[in-house]
Design a protein around this nucleic acid. Structure first.
Lengths: 195, 195
DNA sequence: TGTACATCAGTGAACGCGCGTTCACTGATGTAC
DNA sequence: TGTACATCAGTGAACGCGCGTTCACTGATGTAC
């Protein structure tokens, strides 16, 4: 809500652009990606209904920027969690899953905007530069198996985050992702080549 | 659109109730759970704007019934796919995952209504009577492991269906769920008891 | 330091629109006798 | 079979509302000299 670092730049409102994004994220978190209005966002910033149009051409443009920022935030969290695989890849791998869950939990507005139905997520990130891709590579998983395993881990994380959000997980998501990723990795290890 | 079996009962409109649900499912599939309006649904049925209120007290009531029906449809598909584990559990297990994906694909309106953010999904179904619970039991998976594995498979299926819906799956969801479930099962098999 | 000017973030009134919902009504159907 | 009546699904006009967006404006800030 109050970011003292930024209020210093008090030109007129200050950073209405960022304030609107923050307000929109909060509203999306509360009421879903379609349940927010430009007027709500303006009100939350203490600004007139037309002010947002000085910063976003459109409601759609605001939502799109929210999604873009969400993608960046998620990537940053994942990269920080992987941290080059320190101190050892298995530990870092577990941090990756936790980072995904934490993002969905702590930034629900950005998370929902990013995965809102109909949001084109720019392009799929290059798996080799993504934290998950690096993690798998450092485990010696390569080729087709790396691709399928990465997608399965992603889907598992995403599914757990979604089910947790809708209150349908009777067990802690962290435990489930830890043991799930471990099972996927161990299952891959004992795979017959022709499977 | 035209279900000849049902048009026979042509009392006034016929089955406006069901027609409205069908129309709403189609609209939700197109524009998301919040992107549909009662007027759209009424228009799609060729009926005045106030007619729906003879069948649903509310827009929320219509959405809630859509979600309830979605839950039943999903359960029916899963039960039919499991089919008592015939002809052998591993084969039937694969059908389970495919049934989940098929539901999300073929009934997107019901699927989205069922998992819409903020939709309270009645109560969680009893795992022992759910097709997934039966399947795990017939594999000899029981106790804590059955619970975590069931949730992991559910999350994996749900995540894959979601990612496919938003066009982020570069590989066929069926292949990923088959190999993912196999890996989870194999990984569970080689688990140390203390893990 | 002081003045003149350009910039541009924010105002507030206004618009047209579609929505959810209500209400008194109409007219087709089903039922009792 | 025929008549009288109750039921209730659907009508259409109307309401108040919040929304997205526009537009001419104002007034604070930054810049040039």
């Amino acid at each position: 809500m109050a970011d003292p670092e930024k209020t210093r730049r008090a030109y007129h409102h200050g950073n209405l652009h960022q304030a609107l994004l923050d307000a929109a994220a909060a509203l999306v978190a509360e009421r879903g990606p379609e349940g927010f209005s430009m007027l709500d966002a303006a009100r939350a910033c203490g600004v007139s209904a037309s002010a947002p149009y000085k910063h976003f051409t459109d409601k759609a443009a605001l939502l799109a920027e929210l999604a873009t920022l969400g993608g960046e935030k998620l990537h940053q969290r994942m990269a920080a969690a992987w941290d080059g695989g320190q101190p050892e890849p298995p530990k870092a791998f577990l941090r990756l899953g936790h980072a995904y869950l934490a993002f969905a939990r702590e930034e629900p507005g950005y998370y929902l905007a990013l995965f809102r139905p109909g949001a084109a997520p720019a392009e799929a990130p290059d798996p080799r530069t993504s934290p998950l891709g690096q993690a798998l590579a450092s485990f010696g998983v390569a080729g087709g198996a790396a691709g399928t395993l990465a997608l399965q881990i992603w889907a598992l994380s995403h599914g757990l985050a979604s089910l947790e959000r809708s209150g349908q997980l009777p067990l802690p998501a962290e435990d489930l992702i830890d043991s799930g990723v471990a099972r996927l990795l161990r299952g891959l290890g004992t795979e017959r080549p022709a499977g």
